[in-house]
Amino acid sequence: MSQQDMTIYEHLEEVRKRLIIVIVFFFIAAIGGLFLAKPIIQYLQHADEAAALTMNAFRVTDPLKVYFQMAFVIGLVLTSPVLLYQLWAFVSPGLHERERRVTLSYIPASILLFLGGLSFSYFVLFPYIIHFMMKLSGDLNIEQVIGINEYFHFLFQTTIPFGFLFQLPVITLFLTRLGIVTPQLLGQIRRYAYFVLLVIAALITPPDIMSFAIVSVPLFLLYEVSVWISRIGYKKAQQTEALTAENEEKSAQ
């Protein structure tokens, strides 16, 4: 086996080990989520957004399905810091010492942004959608019969994507520090990025202009914040490279 093949094999082996760590931790977190699922489901059922709704189970297995879905989501949220750390640990050997410290600080920022995305979608977007749908049903003289499985499925479908979308600034900064993305590139693809964000907003909102605006405007702001942060990260990366090159030149002399 050549040295290059050995290096590729070692990288694949490291990826496998880190994936195993993440998967094992997820199973442990999901098991813990089984104990947390019941009080969280009960809280969400009695929150203001659902207080006026009567939850129904249309199939015998619906309560069990919701219970396990909630445990899965809890496990996913609890595993996200471990996943981010394993990703950082995999790429950190190729970074300078200062870059390793800086990128490690992205993990708590990423978690806060994920929770911020969930909070925004649950406390701002989700209530508006529910009220809109209830008002539309009243205008059409339709009596809403809410299935608990459908309700929580719609809740997860609306909130969880925002947790990941709010990661955009951190992901952009991380890719910028790795040299994969530049602020110039982000500026050039802005119109295409806006189009993709509009499609995402259309997919996760009901067909009314207010819901579409509530979703699309924050996504545009997130992208512009990402471009701004990328400029800062790119400038600091260039300064670090210049300082490193200067130190190496002094050492060589």
Results as ranks from 00 to 15, higher is better:
residue 10 E to H: 03
residue 14 E to S: 04
residue 20 I to L: 14
residue 26 F to C: 03
residue 29 A to K: 09
residue 30 A to R: 14
residue 31 I to S: 03
residue 37 A to H: 13
residue 49 E to S: 15
residue 59 R to I: 05
residue 62 D to K: 15
residue 64 L to K: 00
residue 66 V to G: 03
residue 67 Y to H: 13
residue 81 P to F: 04
residue 83 L to F: 04
residue 86 Q to A: 07
residue 98 R to I: 02
residue 101 R to K: 04
residue 101 R to W: 13
residue 102 V to N: 07
residue 103 T to Y: 00
residue 103 T to M: 01
residue 106 Y to S: 02
residue 110 S to T: 03
residue 111 I to M: 07
residue 115 L to A: 12
residue 115 L to P: 02
residue 116 G to N: 00
residue 117 G to E: 01
residue 121 S to G: 06
residue 131 H to D: 12
residue 139 D to V: 07
residue 142 I to F: 15
residue 143 E to G: 10
residue 146 I to A: 15
residue 152 F to N: 02
residue 156 F to C: 14
residue 161 P to L: 03
residue 164 F to R: 11
residue 170 V to R: 07
residue 173 L to E: 08
residue 175 L to T: 15
residue 177 R to Q: 13
residue 178 L to T: 04
residue 179 G to K: 03
residue 183 P to L: 05
residue 187 G to W: 00
residue 206 P to G: 06
residue 216 S to L: 12
residue 218 P to Y: 08
residue 219 L to R: 07
residue 224 E to Q: 08
residue 225 V to N: 00
residue 227 V to M: 03
residue 230 S to L: 01
residue 230 S to N: 07
residue 236 K to I: 02
residue 240 T to Q: 10
residue 243 L to G: 11
residue 243 L to A: 15
residue 244 T to A: 06
residue 245 A to T: 04
residue 248 E to M: 11
residue 253 Q to W: 05
